[in-house]
Design a protein around this nucleic acid. Sequence first.
DNA 1: ATCCTGATTATGTATAGACAATTAAATCGT
DNA 2: ACGATTTAATTGTCTATACATAATCAGGAT
Lengths: 244, 244
Amino acid sequence: MRDRSAELPRYLEIQRDLQQKIASGEWAPGSRVPSEHELQAQYSCSRMTVNKALSALARAGLVIRKRRSGSFVASPRSEQTILNIHDIQAEIAASGKAYRFEILLRTKRAMSEEDAARLAVRKTGAVLAMVVRHFAGDIPFVVEERLLNLNVVPDAEIEPFRDSPPGTWLLNVVPWTNAEHSIYADIATGHMASLLDVEKKAACLVIERRTWQGANTITWVRLSYPGERHRLTSHFWPGGAPAI
Amino acid sequence: MRDRSAELPRYLEIQRDLQQKIASGEWAPGSRVPSEHELQAQYSCSRMTVNKALSALARAGLVIRKRRSGSFVASPRSEQTILNIHDIQAEIAASGKAYRFEILLRTKRAMSEEDAARLAVRKTGAVLAMVVRHFAGDIPFVVEERLLNLNVVPDAEIEPFRDSPPGTWLLNVVPWTNAEHSIYADIATGHMASLLDVEKKAACLVIERRTWQGANTITWVRLSYPGERHRLTSHFWPGGAPAI
DNA sequence: ATCCTGATTATGTATAGACAATTAAATCGT
DNA sequence: ACGATTTAATTGTCTATACATAATCAGGAT
């Protein structure tokens, strides 16, 4: 029936074809995409195959689909990117540098008002507060301030964190369902500057993250990177992969 | 046949069911997920329905699928988040503040070495270099330094940018296919500090972005935000939406 | 033991058809 | 002319089936 010499699956072929028409501007934002019925005829395939292509484009935000009305090229409202925030241990190891970490503080305490606010939970139970410094080679890479919700992760209390830092340990031990990131720039205080081995009042890139398992906040963490030594970079294709 | 009182489509019901088992840790990373055949029997539905659920989980990175071997719970290697970098005009308008912008520089010039490096293209043709300051109310919100590749967007040369700043104009005029973001922290130089109305040597959150249409670089832009006044935040669910 | 070979299994893709849900458009009654 | 009702177009979901493809496994030949 169909050309079996084709490399790509049919639905991907169609998807990229449409994506190309949108990306090139040939199909302007707001304009109507042919209906599944029409595309099915054009590509001489089943409706399900066309549907798979169009659904993927809808998921990627390139088209908007409405029953009875049809599918329309979406107007771009914002630029998206998927930020991959790697496990620090893995990230440094991948860069070829020697990794080590140093636990500067480890305290169990009853949850304070501030702790509760950071974890975004009611003030109850206990937390494990930690400060960890990570090194890439001999250079301080990032300082991690962390709160672990012992109500959710009681095991953390007895974990020595000898081989793995708390972030890596958590990632492997407790599955997370959702996370909130907040990224900003700040001036290194005297203490932070000495920990990162940068000048006083140097710029820091700060990432704050809260991680949940369902309704429970697992952990809050603040990562302070020396501004000149660290960049978050990411490459993004709306379709999920290079189109051509 | 099936229970029509169910609110959710069958495939989503299955998807969330599996997602919950993974998120709760009931199914550990590396462990095997029942095969499509088994799930089809468990949920008494067709294989295509199960396939849709499993494919979605694979796309979200929660499971890894291998022919002949089966599907396995993925071990989390990094935390992802989808960063939505909004159109500045829309972002400020959405916050309820008055938006205005001011073009501080607009120069057409032959592409220099530095321009070519920033745009990641061969040095050829001309660029339009701009510096734009955006205000939220009366407060400087961000300073935008931009290079427009006139080889790709010749229309920019005659565009007055009276109603819309270049970012908004581009978003509406030229569709983009992929983008690269780089986020870091920097110290405000004297000039930048005065533009942003912050103290000298204040921390700035800087976003650099290159945007392509296919193989052509459309634009390079550097956005400098006052560090204390701006945060990038995002909330992320691996499945794409709250599971419960 | 080692290497080929074929059987088996799970996923990947595709088809044709069916019904449901949504809603724009057309029709009808007043 | 207007409002209510019907029709129809389009997407959303689902089924049953089929064959393709990749990878593992078990034998069997060397």
